[in-house]
Structure formats: structure tokens, C-alpha cells
């Protein structure tokens, strides 16, 4: 019996405690850099698209909300012809970011992306691609890949020997 009144009293005293509610949107709260919010496509330090359209993000996506089509420029550099994320399906699990071998797709600390029309939740590459490198400043996939692209010939990547001269028999 006394317990009940103690409980009542304890609960009543909470009326004078500070509030835990953050008055969003007047008050913003801190989102850590690794917060899993709006997805972006970043660029490498040279300002080129990082995405090589390998489809790994798409296959990792548990709700299958990423669709893209790979294509190639005249020098063999791969990039997505289109890249679409249906944010009305996205669950912000971050699997795409984990799957990405080139740090191209990244989740950002932005979660203010509500729309009145569901159709506006479909983001195309123009909407996703940012100007900077995002969280990973220095990585440039094509500097370590063996593929030759415009501006980087065979043997010019990191830790690569010059191409073998097939006409030579020297060891």
C-alpha cells in the first residue's frame, strides 16, 4: 500500500525534472560523421566520379532499392550511366557503403529528406553525386587497380612494374 503512494510521489516529482525532449527542428542535435543518413556518391581526390558501377551496392541492398547501369568512357574508365536510389524504400542500413570497394557510396549525417510526393524520394545520379571526397579523403581506386584508363597507363598504378616487353627474353 505504501509502495503505491511512494510510486505516485516519485512519479509526481518528475514534473520538476529537466526535459529530455529535444525541440527539433528549432533545436538541432549532433549527428556523428558516421551517422547513416542520406546516401551520396563521392568523387576521388582528382575530382572524378569514384563510382565504377560494379553493382555491389545494388546486390548488397536488402530492399533492392539501388538500380544502376554501368558504362565506359572512351579510355576504359567505368562509371554509372544512371544511378538511382529509391529512398522511399531505403532503410539506411549502410550495407551499400560497406560493400562499396571504392568508397564512392557513402551515408551522411543528414536525415532531413522528407517529401510530400513519394516520387520525389527517387534520387538520380545528379541528386546523389557531390563535389567532394566525403569521409575518405585520399583513396583513389584507379590508382591501385590494374586497369588502364585515360591518364593512367598499364604499369603506372601503385606497386606495379612497367609492362612486360614481349619481344625481350631478358629475365
Amino acid at each position: 500500500m505504501a509502495n503505491i503512494f511512494t510510486t505516485l510521489w516519485r512519479v509526481f516529482r518528475h514534473a520538476f525534472r529537466p526535459r529530455v525532449t529535444v525541440q527539433y527542428p528549432e533545436q538541432k542535435f549532433y549527428l556523428p560523421p558516421r551517422w547513416r543518413g542520406r546516401i551520396i556518391l563521392s568523387r576521388d581526390p582528382d575530382g572524378e566520379e569514384r563510382c565504377v558501377a560494379c553493382y555491389l551496392c545494388a546486390v548488397a541492398c536488402p530492399v533492392d532499392c539501388i538500380a544502376l547501369q554501368a558504362t565506359e568512357d572512351e579510355h576504359g574508365r567505368r562509371y554509372p550511366e544512371f544511378f538511382r536510389i529509391n529512398f522511399s524504400r531505403c532503410i539506411f542500413c549502410g550495407f551499400c557503403e560497406e560493400a562499396c570497394p571504392t568508397y564512392a557510396i557513402q551515408l551522411t549525417p543528414d536525415m532531413e529528406m522528407s517529401e510530400y510526393r513519394r516520387q520525389d524520394m527517387v534520387y538520380e545520379k545528379e541528386d546523389l553525386l557531390i563535389e567532394g571526397t566525403g569521409k575518405y579523403r585520399d583513396y583513389n581506386y584507379y590508382r591501385v587497380a590494374g586497369l588502364a584508363i585515360g591518364g593512367k597507363d598499364k604499369g603506372e598504378a601503385e606497386r606495379e612494374q612497367a609492362p612486360v616487353d614481349l619481344r625481350s627474353l631478358l629475365p
Partner: peptide, 16 residues
């Protein structure tokens, strides 16, 4: 089973 993009392929036309 790993087919991807099911909910994004046609959404440029219609999100439904």
C-alpha cells in the same frame, strides 16, 4: 536470388 534493384528499376517512371 541475389537479383538487385527490384524496387528501383522502374521508379524513374513511377515510384509505385
Amino acid at each position: 536470388a541475389r537479383f538487385s534493384g527490384r524496387t528501383a528499376i522502374h521508379t524513374d517512371q513511377d515510384v509505385r
